[in-house]
Design a protein around this nucleic acid. Structure first.
Length: 210
DNA sequence: ACATTAAGTGATT
DNA sequence: AATCACTTAATGT
C-alpha cells in the first residue's frame, strides 16, 4: 500500500504531506463493479486512487444512467471536492470499473491541507480542472456526436482505462452506460465489426487497431 | 434436456 | 435512434 502511494504520488506531494497521508488515509480495496459512492449519500471523505479505475455516472430518479468520466491512478473526484465543501448530497454514483485500491482522506484533513500544503492545493485544483475538461468532453459527445461515434469513443476509452483491448461487457451494459437501448448498441457494434474495428464475442469485445 | 441470458434482425414509428 | 417482436446462439443447472 505504502509503495503504491509513493509510486504514484511522491513526485506530486511534498514529504511532510506524504507522511500525513500515510497516517490519516484509510486504505480500502474495492472489487470491480461494486458501488463506491451512491446517489443521495453524503460524502465525508475523498478518495485518492492508488490502483485501478473508477467510473463516474449520473443517475436520475428512474435509475437511468449516463457515464460522465473515469478516474484513474493519481486522480481524485471533482464531485467529491465540491460535495465535501458544502453539506451536499452526492449527485453522482461511483462504481469500480476494475478492482480498485483507494486511500480515503477525511474531509477535515483535506480542507486543512489546502492551506497547509501548496502541493496539495495544486493537486486539488489541477484535478478539479482536468475532471471539468473530461466532463465537458462528455457533454460535447452527447450534444454533437452521433451514437456510433459516441460508442466508438466509449470503447476506446474503456481500452485505455482497463489497460486491455479485451473489454468484458454485454451490449446491455454498454446501452446502460450510454443511456440508449441494447438493440441500437448491437446494430452499431455489428457495423464496427464490419469495418474491422472490433471483434464481437459473447460477453466481451476485442478492440482492434488502437 | 431445459431454462436463462446474450446477441442478431426485420419491420415500424 | 427507439421500440417491438421474434429468432438464434451460448451458457448454466
Amino acid at each position: 500500500m505504502v509503495e503504491l502511494l509513493y509510486q504514484n504520488y511522491e513526485f506530486l506531494f511534498q514529504k511532510e504531506l506524504l507522511e500525513e497521508i500515510k497516517q490519516v488515509g484509510v486504505y480500502k480495496k474495492i472489487q470491480a463493479n461494486s458501488t463506491i459512492i451512491d446517489v443521495d449519500s453524503y460524502i465525508t471523505s475523498m478518495p485518492l486512487v492508488l490502483n485501478g479505475a473508477i467510473k463516474i455516472l449520473r443517475e436520475d430518479n428512474d435509475g437511468d444512467e449516463l457515464v460522465l468520466y473515469y478516474l484513474e491512478v493519481g486522480d481524485t473526484c471533482a464531485m467529491t471536492l465540491s460535495c465535501c465543501m458544502g453539506q451536499v448530497k452526492s449527485q453522482i454514483r461511483a462504481v469500480a470499473e476494475t478492482d480498485v485500491e483507494l486511500l480515503m482522506i477525511p474531509k477535515k484533513k483535506m480542507t486543512e491541507w489546502l492551506s497547509k500544503y501548496l502541493s496539495w492545493q495544486e493537486f486539488v485544483l489541477q484535478s478539479y480542472h482536468s475532471r471539468m475538461e473530461e466532463f465537458i468532453k462528455a457533454v460535447d459527445s452527447i450534444a454533437f456526436l452521433k451514437m456510433d461515434e459516441r460508442l466508438y469513443k466509449y470503447l476506446q476509452n474503456k481500452v485505455l482505462v482497463n489497460h486491455s483491448e479485451v473489454i468484458q461487457v454485454t451490449h446491455q451494459q454498454i446501452a446502460n452506460d450510454l443511456h440508449t437501448s441494447r438493440v441500437v448498441i448491437s446494430r452499431l457494434l455489428k457495423g464496427l465489426e464490419k469495418e474491422s474495428k472490433i471483434e464481437l464475442h459473447r460477453s466481451h469485445i476485442t478492440v482492434l487497431n488502437i
